[in-house]
Structures are given as C-alpha cells and as structure tokens.
Design a binder for these strands. Sequence first.
DNA 1: CACTTTTAGGCAAGAGTCCTTACTAGAATG
DNA 2: CATTCTAGTAAGGACTCTTGCCTAAAAGTG
Lengths: 383, 383
Amino acid sequence: MVRMTPPKPSLEMLRTLTDENVLRSLMAHPRLTRAEISARTGISKPTISDSVQRLTRAGLVVDTGERTTGRGRVGSYYSLAPQLGAALVAAITPRGVVAEAVDALGHVHGQVRTALEASAGPRVAAEALDAAAGQLAGRIPGRLRLAVVSAADPVDRGTGRLVHLPDAPFLVGDLDPSAVLAPTVSGPVLVDNDVNWAARAEHRAGCAGGVDDFVYLHLGEGLGCAVVSDGVVRRGHRGLVGEIAHLCTAGPDGKAMAFTEVFAVLGLRRPASTAIDVPALVELLARRDEQAERVRAVLVRAIGGVLSAAVSLADPRMVVIGGEWGLCPGLITAVDEHFSRTPRPVPLTAAVLSSPELTGARSRAVEELRSLIVRTAHPAPQA
Amino acid sequence: MVRMTPPKPSLEMLRTLTDENVLRSLMAHPRLTRAEISARTGISKPTISDSVQRLTRAGLVVDTGERTTGRGRVGSYYSLAPQLGAALVAAITPRGVVAEAVDALGHVHGQVRTALEASAGPRVAAEALDAAAGQLAGRIPGRLRLAVVSAADPVDRGTGRLVHLPDAPFLVGDLDPSAVLAPTVSGPVLVDNDVNWAARAEHRAGCAGGVDDFVYLHLGEGLGCAVVSDGVVRRGHRGLVGEIAHLCTAGPDGKAMAFTEVFAVLGLRRPASTAIDVPALVELLARRDEQAERVRAVLVRAIGGVLSAAVSLADPRMVVIGGEWGLCPGLITAVDEHFSRTPRPVPLTAAVLSSPELTGARSRAVEELRSLIVRTAHPAPQA
DNA sequence: CACTTTTAGGCAAGAGTCCTTACTAGAATG
DNA sequence: CATTCTAGTAAGGACTCTTGCCTAAAAGTG
C-alpha cells in the first residue's frame, strides 16, 4: 500500500535526514573522517561537520582519537559510540542453543553454545537461552537492545511464542522467547522459525541470490517451507506460512493424503511422535534395494505434490531444498526429474549455507539494530 | 527490504514535499481554498500560498473562479487542472470488454461496453479494446496517461501479456494489452488477471475489509485464486500465483490428482476444452439426487485439498470464495463444514462485490494516476 | 632545505524554505 | 453601523544547506 499522506516538510526533517546519512555511513564503515563522510554521502562538508558535532554531543558518535596519516592535514576519525549496544542473536533447536551478540557494524562479539539433551523440555531450553543472554550481556560495552531468535518450531507472528500445531512435531516445546529475554534485553524480541531465517540467508548470499521469488523447502525432523515473495519472507496472518505437514498430496498407491501422513504410512516416524525418523530415512535413502526404491518413489511423488502447491500459490522462480534428509544424495535429482515432467516445472537447487538460520537471523539483527539507532537518534515525530 | 541509503537532504526536497501535500489534498477533495489546504495539511498559510502559486504557474492547479460564501473574506477555490488527464480502466473477458476513464479525483468519465461473441478470438477483443480506448480518449479533457487492465486469463508479470498455461483454459486468448493501447495511452499499462483485481477490491471494501492476509478462491470457467499477504496481492515471479489448475488435490475415490483433472473425470468440462462447463455444474449443484450428492462430495473434498494448500502456504485469516459456481447456494457451507473438521480450519466467506475486478482495477488506476501526477510535478531527481 | 602539492577542516556569505506574527480586505451578523 | 469572522498578504526571523575561500599540517619535489 502506498503512503497516502506525504510527510509534513520541515527543517527539522532535513536535519534528521542528514544525521541519518552520517549514522548510516558510520554503520557501513567502522571509522571515517568528516571529509570522507561528506564525499560518501554527497552532502557538503560544513553540513557534515554540524551533524557530527550534534551526534557527538548526543553520545551517538565518538572521536576515536585516531588521526589520518598520509598527505594533507591530519583528520580525525569518528565512529559509532560503543555504548550504542548490540543485538542478541539466538538459534534454538532441540539439540541446543547458540547465541551471539552483534553490533551495528555487523561484528560478532561472542558466541555461546549450549548443548541440550534430546529429551530436555522447553524449561531447559529457556534456562539455556537466559544464561547465554546473561553471559553475552556482560561481554559487550552497551546493553542488549533487541533480540532476534530462530526457533525450530512454528512461531506465532503476533505473540512470538512457539506454537504446537495438531499432528505436527513440537521439537523445542512451549517457549516464549520474549518473556525469557525480557530481563536481559531492553528492546523488542523478534522470533521466527528456523526455515524462514534460513530462506532469508539463502536469499541474500546463497544460491537464490538475486532471486526475489522462491520457495525454500526444508526436509528434516519437521516438514516446513518458506515462501519468499517480492524479496520478503511471507509469514501470513499467524506466521504459519510454510507449515506443510497437512498439505494434501499424493501418498502410496496414488492416494490423496496429508504430507505428514505419508511418513506415518511408510513407518518413517519416530515412535510416539509426529517427528520424522531422520536416521532411518537417511539410511533408507542410501540403500538401493527394491523396498528402498519403492519408498523413494513414494517420497518423490509426495514432494512433487507439495511442489505443485508451491508453484500454484507462490509462483517461485526456483525451489531451494534443504534439511537433514532433503540433501541426501540423489533425492534432489530424483525429485527434479519427476517434477520437470509436470505441467509447470521449476528449477530445483540444493541449499548451500551451513548454519543458515543463524546467518539469516544475524543479518536481520544488524538491520534492526541500525534502524533502532537511527530512530532513537531523533525521537519519532508521530502524531 | 529496508532502504539502505537514506535520501540526501536538500531544500528542494522540502519544496517538493510541500507541493505533494497540496496535490494530494486536492486529489482527496475536488476544490479547496488555500486556507483549507493549510488546515488540512498542517502547513502554514504562506507556505501553501507559495506552493499553490508554483503549481498554478506549472499548470497543475487552477483557480476555479468559484469563491467562498459565508462570513469572512471571500476565498478562492483551487482544484486540479482538468488537463492532468485520466487513466483508462478496462476489463476483458470472453464475453466482452468494459472500459472506463477515471481522473485523479476518482470520478468516472464514461463507460464503454462491448459484447463479444463466445467464439470471438483475441483479435476481436483487441479491436474492441482499442475502439473503447479511442472513444474514451475523446471524452476527457486531457490525455489517457496510463491504463489498468483486468483480463480473464493468467498474465505474465514481466510483459503484461496474457499467457496460455498447459491444460488450463485460455478464455480470452493471446493478447498484449500494452501493444494494443500504446497508440492511445501515453504512459504505462498495468495488466493483471481478474481474480487478483477482485481480491484487491474485496480487500479494500468487501468482506475482507481490514484483513491483510486472505485467500480469494475463484470458481468459474477457470479455476484461480489470489493470495493477499501483508495487504498486497502477491503475484510471484511470473505473475502466476493462483493458477491452481494443477494443484495436487483429492479426486474421486480419494485418488490424488490435479484440481482440473477432477472436473475432467467428473465430466464437467466443456467439450474439447479445459474450461469448466459452468451451466452444467450449476444445474448439477442445484439438484438433490444421489448422483449430484456424490459429485458434490467429490468437489467439496477437492476444494478442501486446495484450501489445505492455501492454508499451508499463505496462512490466511480467512478464505473468500467467489466465481460463477463458487457462489452456488449450499456449496460454501458444505465446504466450510468439511474444512472446519480439518486440522487447520479457517473461516470461509462468500465474495460480496458485484463487478469486483473493475472496482479493483479502478482504484489502482486512481492510485497510479495520482502518483504519476505527483512524480511528474517534480521530475525525478534520480542518480 | 625551501617550495609545492595535497588534504582535513573552519569560516563567512548567500540562497532558499518554512514559520510566526501582524496586518488588510471584504463579507456576514447583530 | 460597529462587530466578528475569515482569506490572504507582508515582514521578519530561524534554520539548513551550499559555495568559495582560507588555514594548518603533512608529504612529496627539486
């Protein structure tokens, strides 16, 4: 939707914009002289000098004490004030918690890894997250001003809580990252599921670089996908876009059934769980006997049905496949071969990044921290 | 994606913003005095006077000659110059072409309807469109500065051409609205399919008013849907989002098959065509005998499969159903009853607007025309 | 070593935009 | 006829950005 009422023009607005230009320059480059900022932004030197003076007085920018070397008059280097703080980045899976702190320059200030027992519940995960946040808070100059969390479960877009969907695995369990981090993190806590973060990372740098419309299919313990449309991961009303367990597809004997049902029928679920038995599945996909071939054919067709839905409802330029068993050798080519014979084929690729969810969450954290700093520099002039 | 480099601040930018405020005010209200514009925008009277003077000199705004009545000094009314032109709005179906001209105030300046033979090809449609545009161009003060076209076929997002998808009906046929309108319309031609326009109209004013995430399912001669996510119709890479003919769903005997196949198996297609035989289907849905019930059950389940895909990949807050046979009495309640027993039910509603595709295209045309006027008032200061 | 070149930064002047305040013109109200 | 109300104008001030010129200091050059 296009903004209907343009902003009211004012001189204050110009000043704010100048300051934003200066701050953004210093976010892209660790240290700059005023002349460099001027050259980089195209804004005149006196104006930049004014702005730097303002921002220095406000405590957002500091003279690093360093001086230019080389020809010409010595110049002073300025940089963002260290007390501007950092953002917490955390990834939570049933296997453990990984947490980092990143500053507005994108530098990582420390990483804490906590392994969890397979049977550990959400309580233990919450404690690990809390502890990690506490440790990281001590290692950075300023405060933790916001957090970006990746979770290996569906996330409610409104509340940020992990949600348990019927007949879908609940790997981490009932957890509210916002509540856990409230004492340690002073600002907003953004939570999304790992598949969405992975898709953002792949969009930025991976095989899908430059492609603004694609679907990322994650085939692991859980079944999920991310829909990137017009360059943004779409989350839908509740944030449950990509929860494809109940998507109607083709099962054994060409019967229509929910995607997750296919695995139940094939006996590929963990006992007393709706999670997929990944080791068994990987082992089976490695085999070449007749039974394995039959199962493989069923899986390929089931995945084809899911892709037909993705093509119909998201029209991706490509489909990226990732996940523990999605990357099994031969699977992608088999799916590709099947899918390329359907009426609307789309190229398939394998995911390339190693811990994509952390990468995706991290870059979002940097983005949010930067915009938070810019916003707080000039308290919002809202109506 | 967030803008990375904020705009360069300049005094010219302020002036541009003031002018934009004035223009937008005059787009929302047919005539205003300078004092009224000032009150409405919150910008001071002298500044508004300056801007109005500039815009009048530039020919964008005119003194209407009317004067205020009532207490106090008489004021002069200003309005947008009539020569600012209008936008063409056209809807093309196999049954005919409807075209209108709308100005920046949103007023419709004339409507031309041309009926087409059922067997008329794209040539005839193109001629009808061209003729309608020619007539409308004569009826308005200025030029036709852009066009917004709705077509009853899939539209390629990149080229704006109608495209024929395998095993899907091609109702209008091979047509390139941009090429047809190039002689008559001086600016851009936006083309999208009727279902997407209808969804935009429903989003704005209809049953889905205020809901930013929903899916609009169109059940007519063709099978289509629109995905509205974060308040915007998503089109995907090629613009083929919602082309659900090949979506894998449940057919008779619970067999997995493409949505369109279900109708083939049920014998509900027009002879030698992939289009659905709507009259036959409507007649059948009205019956109550055993065969009708059986077909109805199959259809309900097939639609349920499509909805499961929509829920998985779009997470709508609601599903709106429209189309010639989608609105048949009882169908929606039957689908609703079936769907509410699935693991992830979503409320269903019937579409409410009468010619939604035209309404949707019209409001977009007004929006685009307005932004075109604002942009041309101050030639883009791009790099 | 003296001189030129190069560069960061400061200062002053000027143009432009917006705002506030005060004022004028003209019409309705009582 | 005085009062009241309103649209528009004029003057002055505050503020921002830019241009152009200047200084200081380091590095190269002969």
